[in-house]
């Protein structure tokens, strides 16, 4: 048995004095998908943000190949492709400009992969359009193309299927499957069925939510 690439142990997160989730532990190996499910407010987004290092966790560790990612956050961030509930696109820039710039900000160069990403999400006809003129679903497709372009081993996706029509959902599935087949990992918070073989983790209300914070109230 190979040890999992990504190992999360005892992760807890506190928002506004309330424990959103507590003692979340899981491991994820190459080519595996984890779907985060749970009611609204159960902490799916908070878990994704804690994994990315955007929010310091209350307790617990995230390790990659057995090394705590907090030791070298820059390298860790280089391994991530992030899709939040906001797309992270500039409205005044075109689809192509957004993709190229996002990739360069990640320290990479899109090169030949750009055409593939545009094709995968059927964006060729929209490539030269400014993002603010696009519909919500088209914007989501652009954001997903940004993820597919990134070559990051771990995808962190918050409601990836939001606003997508059936063909776009199928395109997302294909992209996710080829990412997993290439040995990538993905964690997606979702309400809908992703339609891709994977494990799932249900976040629920934490029983210990009334316990006082160990290090005092956060600001």
């Amino acid at each position: 048995m190979v040890p999992p690439l990504l190992e999360v142990t005892g992760l807890a997160c506190r928002r506004g004095g309330r424990l959103v989730f507590d003692r979340v532990s899981f491991g994820l190996g190459a080519g595996e998908l984890l779907a985060l499910t749970g009611r609204n407010g159960s902490g799916k987004t908070s878990l994704l943000r804690a994994l990315a290092g955007l929010t310091p966790p209350e307790a617990g560790t995230v390790s990659w190949r057995g090394v705590d990612v907090a030791k070298d956050p820059e390298t860790w961030r280089g391994r991530l492709a992030w899709l939040g509930h906001l797309e992270g696109l500039k409205g005044d820039l075109t689809v192509i400009e957004n993709l190229l710039i996002a990739e360069r900000l990640r320290g990479g160069e899109a090169g030949d992969r750009l055409d593939g990403a545009l094709l995968a999400f059927d964006l060729n006809a929209l490539a030269a359009r400014e993002v603010r003129t696009l519909s919500a679903g088209q914007r989501r497709r652009t954001a997903l193309a940004r993820i597919a372009l990134s070559q990051a081993p771990l995808w962190l996706l918050d409601e990836p299927l939001n606003a997508l029509d059936a063909p776009a959902q199928a395109a997302f599935r294909t992209a996710l499957q080829s990412h997993l087949a290439a040995g990538g990992l993905a964690i997606a918070a979702t309400h809908a069925e992703l339609g891709v073989e994977g494990r799932s983790l249900e976040l629920g209300p934490t029983l210990s939510s009334t316990s006082p914070p160990p290090g005092g109230e956060e600001g």
């Binding site: 955007l54 820059e74 992030w82 906001l86 992270g88 696109l89 900000l105 320290g107």
Partner: peptide, 15 residues
């Protein structure tokens, strides 16, 4: 901050 590109800067692998 409003369009989410700040998250991309926060997650960029450089300072």
């Amino acid at each position: 901050y409003e369009d989410g590109t700040l998250d991309l800067l926060l997650l960029a692998p450089w300072p």
